[in-house]
């Protein structure tokens, strides 16, 4: 199947145009984060700062404990992911390969949860978390997200595809449920697990509403909330510092995905995500 020359050129042009259009806001972010305050007070389109103000980053550290926020964010993201995997893998296994009464109904409960994100039932969840005494704790930031209907659904689809022959082989070896999961299902479902994990990390690095409601203290605040608070204080006052803080909040997650790009793209494209 040959592409006509003009067709190729046109397609590449469209792609490049879109790519650049989407990247431009980020370039603007980078450039502003490195400018001096005086440079942004005139409405001009200058991309390269006169002097690179690396000190902007030191300055935001002075104004708010961003490293602490980052630590909190990492704890919360990792915590959520680990518990999610602990809960989701056995559940998906049960739905994919075991039988028991009421399976359909219970599975439906998991699937419906996909459509009911925490944000939509924030009021009662806040009340429950309050009753549990988990306001202003990292545990309170983690627990409401650990039962993932999405993860259960995704992994179940993948687990189902593992051929029965492998299960038989495992049985002959005398393996039980757990060994079978650990040694057969998990290795064979790596792309899905990796994909789910990375989506989970990206999602919860993003969380804003829930931490906004249940945290007051700097010692439990996450990056997004720290940024939101910083903004309330600074907004309009100094775009350079604001953009430096914004960059600080999104740089780690972007760096993480860039560093793992090959694994991520490969896993994503081969995982069972397409539904």
């Amino acid at each position: 199947m040959e592409e006509k020359k003009y067709e190729t050129v046109l397609k590449i042009f469209i792609l490049q145009f879109a790519a650049i259009a989407v990247i431009l806001p980020f370039v603007w972010l980078l450039s502003t984060a490195l400018k001096s305050p005086g440079e942004v007070f005139t409405p001009t389109l200058k991309l390269i700062p006169d002097t690179f103000m690396w000190s902007n980053f030191l300055e935001i550290m002075d104004r708010a404990p961003f490293w602490l926020y980052m630590l909190n964010t990492i704890i919360v993201c990792v915590g959520i992911l680990l518990i999610q995997l602990l809960l989701v893998i056995p559940a998906a296994y049960a739905f994919a390969r075991l039988d028991f009464p009421g399976k359909d109904v219970i599975f439906l409960l998991f699937v419906i949860q996909i459509m009911l994100p925490l944000e939509s039932i924030i009021i009662p969840n806040y009340l429950i978390t309050k009753k549990l005494g988990l306001l202003n704790t990292r545990t309170g930031l983690i627990l409401p997200f650990v039962a993932s209907g999405f993860g259960t659904f995704m992994l179940r689809q993948t687990f189902k595809q593992v051929p029965n022959a492998l299960e038989d082989a495992a049985l002959i070896d005398g393996a039980g449920h757990l060994r079978f999961i650990w040694h057969v299902l998990i290795p064979l479902s790596r792309p899905t697990i990796v994909t789910f994990s990375m989506i989970s990390i990206a999602t919860h690095w993003n969380d804003y509403f829930w931490p906004l409601i249940i945290t007051d203290m700097d010692r439990v605040r996450t990056l997004t909330i720290g940024l939101g608070m910083f903004v309330q204080q600074e907004s309009g006052s100094d775009w350079t510092l604001l953009m430096a803080a914004t960059l600080f909040v999104c740089a780690p997650i972007i760096a993480f995905f860039l560093a793992t790009q090959k694994t991520f793209i490969k896993s994503f494209l081969t995982s069972g995500i397409k539904g």
Binding site: V22, I23, P25, F26, L223, L227, M243, C250
Partner: peptide
């Protein structure tokens, strides 16, 4: 280049 905005926390994107 198309996907990276998904990774940026909405709070940060909002500021930008």
């Amino acid at each position: 280049s198309l996907f990276y905005p998904t990774l940026i926390p909405m709070a940060a994107a909002a500021m930008l």
